[in-house]
Design a protein around this nucleic acid. Structure first.
Length: 428
DNA sequence: TCTGGGGTCCTAGGACCC
DNA sequence: TCTGGGGTCCTAGGACCC
């Protein structure tokens, strides 16, 4: 049976979230900045029209921003995550099978929806998300995930489709003409490097990629691009993944708000990151077998001495215990730290993850088992308190109270939907 | 002064084993 | 003339995604 997928994607998601709670941003050029107010990670259409690229450093845009009145917001992930949950919950009602692909997009399986006008269905979806959450979305529909993605691109870029495009609604010749008009770099899975290499072989538009020889493509570019080609031909190679498998690694790292010299401050940061990562680890009910610690100076400051280093510390027994993980992380940090450098970033990665349940029990004696159990209850309590009372209510003393290294967020909006004290107030 | 933070998959090459 | 060959595991690096 031919399959059919829809890809629903929120337009300029972070910017749109900000606009829901601050309508004065509507119609104006708005960017949302990455952590530390470093780069643009979301741009309104007005900003895209000014030629600002994804990931552009904010400090380089000062002049442009002033000239055109660009408004910047620091990222507010708490808000975006909550808005995302609302959107995904609504979308789940439109198909029995949903894959949440990222914070702002999901696939729905529309296979067998033969009695339905799919374009009309897409418009219903758009209208509902708009009315219930206030966010603009576009809908792309196609017989494979890659084509649904591409259809979404068309829905977004070509106003005549009014935000919904069904690739299957075109005749074969019209499909070819459409593909010929789209740059190959717009295809899901074709990034800048591969696009450049394809261009050198004369493959510049999507049609040329679809018509290429799969065998040659596989030899030259690998199996991934061959799959992409087959998907463009309508042969579904990528299945819908409804349950996301547990993560194989969990990372937590941040650039500092200012450069850091002292090992004491690095310790605070490493402890903080490890505690956050351990929380995520327990949330997915895994244990880690090793922890990787790393440190960087600022690579953009070419006139300063540079130092990049990382170290993987194995754990004697796989664990999700924050204190055990912190101990290992600090051991790694002590090995890595060299005085005299100005550090810009530190981070940790939890590796060799395994299910906490399926894990083989070590040969402990009785008192040890009891100690492990006590520690487990402590972690459960820690997580429960933080879940109920808000993040960071209970913390390790080692995380530090000052956290002078903490990131910058000068333009942050309130957590409108998740904190009682930051609820929006409406007056009539 | 100021340049993000997560993840995944694939491949090539080396080590090691029989 | 004529170096063995094949399988597996691990790691680093490259490419991609949002």
């Amino acid at each position: 049976m031919t399959q059919n997928f829809a890809l629903i994607d929120c337009n300029n998601f972070y910017v749109s979230c900000e606009r829901v709670f601050d309508p004065s941003l509507e119609g104006r050029p708005v960017v949302v900045l990455s952590n530390n107010d470093g780069c643009c990670v979301a741009r309104s259409n007005e900003v895209k029209a000014l030629g600002v690229k994804m990931g552009a450093p904010w400090f380089q845009l000062q002049e442009l921003a002033e000239r055109h009145g660009i408004i910047a917001r620091s990222s507010n992930y708490t808000l975006y995550a909550d808005m995302s949950n609302r959107v995904m919950g609504i979308l789940a009602g439109f198909s029995p099978r949903q894959e949440i692909y990222s914070i702002d997009e999901c696939f729905l399986d529309l296979t067998g929806f033969t009695q339905v006008d799919l374009t009309g269905y897409g418009q219903t979806i758009r209208a509902k998300i708009s009315r219930w959450v206030g966010l603009p979305v576009c809908v792309g529909i196609g017989p494979t995930k890659t084509l649904a993605k591409l259809a979404n691109h068309v829905a977004k870029k070509r106003p005549q489709y009014d935000g919904v495009f069904d690739y299957g609604s075109l005749a074969t010749s019209e499909q070819s003409a459409l593909l010929e008009s789209i740059d190959v770099s717009e295809v899901w899975g074709v990034g800048g490097r591969i696009a450049a290499r394809l261009n050198r072989r004369g493959i510049t538009h999507v049609l040329a990629l679809r018509e290429a020889d799969p065998k040659i493509l596989r030899r030259e570019f690998g199996v991934t691009l061959e799959r992409t080609l087959r998907e463009l031909r309508g042969e579904s190679c990528l299945a819908l993944e409804e349950v996301n498998p547990p993560k194989q690694q969990i990372m937590c790292s941040r650039s500092f708000g200012k450069l850091v010299l002292r090992v004491e401050e690095l310790r605070e940061a490493v402890i903080t990151y490890t505690a956050r990562a351990a929380e995520k680890l327990r949330l997915q009910q895994s244990v880690a077998g090793a922890i990787h610690v790393f440190l960087n100076t600022n690579r953009f400051k070419t006139d300063e001495p540079q130092y990049q280093a990382g170290l993987t510390v194995p754990l004697l027994s796989p664990t999700s215990d924050t204190l055990a993980l912190v101990k290992a992380a600090l051991f790694g940090l002590e090995q890595l730290y060299r005085p005299g450098y100005r550090y810009q970033k530190a981070g940790i990665m939890l590796l060799e993850l395994d299910s906490a349940r399926s894990r083989q029990l070590q040969l402990f004696d009785e008192p040890e088992i009891e100690a492990v159990e006590r520690r487990k209850r402590l972690m459960q309590t820690l997580d429960a308190v933080n879940q109920r009372m808000g993040k960071y209510t209970l913390r390790l003393a080692g995380e530090g109270l000052q956290q002078r290294w903490k990131l910058k967020a000068d333009y942050k909006s309130p957590c409108y939907t998740t904190r009682w004290d930051e609820l929006p107030v409406v007056s009539a």
